[in-house]
Every structure is written in structure tokens, then in C-alpha cells.
């Protein structure tokens, strides 16, 4: 199995200019560490030949990079206009009740982080909820219990 360093070096070779591998390298580091911890940023920087500060500067621009720890599972509810028009807020509240956390928080057992996100690009199939980045469409508040159960069962 290749190390993060080796994987980042391979990514860099794909691009005419190696710095283009910054986003993919940060994603790999995040996948390995669960979030972009100082250590993860250091490792990404080492692979890229950039400074950790550079990696931090880039990562902090993008919403999908976590600069604080998150749960093992990510529940992201779109609350942009199209989803909100058909009841995204009620879906969000159902997740809050089911998980016992507010948006931005992680369950006490460290399993699930609940977030609200901007438009996920599934507006006609609202409400969109991304479970570990897989979209669920037409989510209703009544579906939420089963979704959470499924997530928790997924080890």
C-alpha cells in the first residue's frame, strides 16, 4: 500500500504544474485523517513541497475541507431556495431531533456530524440530503429515522 506522500507525488505528475495537485492532495490527507488536522496539513504540505500555511490558506477557502474534527459520517442537508421551498427546514429539524445535535455539531459518540449546505445541484428532486456525499432525493421528515438508523448500522 502506498503512503500518502507517494500518492500525492503521483497526483502531482498528472499536472503540468505540480501545485495543481493541492486540492486532490488535501482531499487525500483529509480522507486519511478524518479532517485536516495540523498533522494532516503537514503531511499534505510535505508531499506537495509547499508550506503547511499554504495548505491551510487554500483549505480554508473551500467548504468541503474540515479544519475541525467531524464525525465518521456526514449528513448534509441542502437549505437553499429550491429545497427550502418544499420543506428542507422540516427535514433539518427531523435530523436535529433524531441525532440530538444542531447543524454544525457532532453526536457525542463522534459518529455523525450534521451540517446545512448550500445548493447541492439536485433542486428538482428536493429535499436533497447528502449522506457521506451520496445524494438522497425527495427526502421527507418521515424518512429521517430510517436514514439515521441506516447510517449508524453502517459501522
Amino acid at each position: 500500500m502506498s503512503t500518502l506522500y507517494e500518492e500525492i507525488r503521483e497526483l502531482m505528475a498528472v499536472y503540468p504544474e505540480p501545485r495543481s495537485a493541492t486540492l486532490p492532495a488535501l482531499r487525500l490527507a483529509q480522507e486519511k485523517h478524518g479532517w485536516l488536522s495540523p498533522e494532516a496539513l503537514r503531511e499534505a504540505a510535505e508531499g506537495l513541497g509547499e508550506t503547511p500555511a499554504y495548505c491551510m490558506a487554500v483549505a480554508s477557502f473551500y467548504d468541503m475541507f474540515h479544519l475541525a474534527p467531524v464525525g465518521r459520517h456526514l449528513v448534509e442537508v441542502c437549505t437553499n431556495v429550491s429545497c427550502a421551498l418544499v420543506g428542507a427546514q422540516q427535514v433539518l429539524e427531523a435530523f436535529e431531533r433524531e441525532l440530538g445535535v444542531r447543524p454544525g455539531e457532532t453526536t457525542a459518540d463522534g459518529e455523525v456530524t450534521l451540517r446545512t449546505v448550500e445548493c447541492l445541484g439536485g433542486c428538482g428532486w428536493a429535499t436533497i440530503v447528502a449522506l457521506d456525499h451520496r445524494y438522497r432525493t425527495h427526502v421527507q421528515p418521515a424518512d429521517v429515522g430510517a436514514i439515521v438508523e441506516e447510517l449508524r448500522a453502517d459501522g
Partner: peptide, 22 residues
């Protein structure tokens, strides 16, 4: 109104542990 009180995403990096950057 269905948009009443909708919780918009916050800037998730405002709470970041910036001070811990190596």
C-alpha cells in the same frame, strides 16, 4: 412561508483552530 427560519449554512471555517496551524 416555507422559508421562515431556514437555517443557512454558516462559514464553517470561522470556528477553525487557526491558532494550531503549525
Amino acid at each position: 412561508s416555507p422559508l421562515d427560519g431556514v437555517v443557512a449554512p454558516v462559514n464553517q471555517h470561522t470556528q477553525s483552530p487557526v491558532a494550531e496551524v503549525p
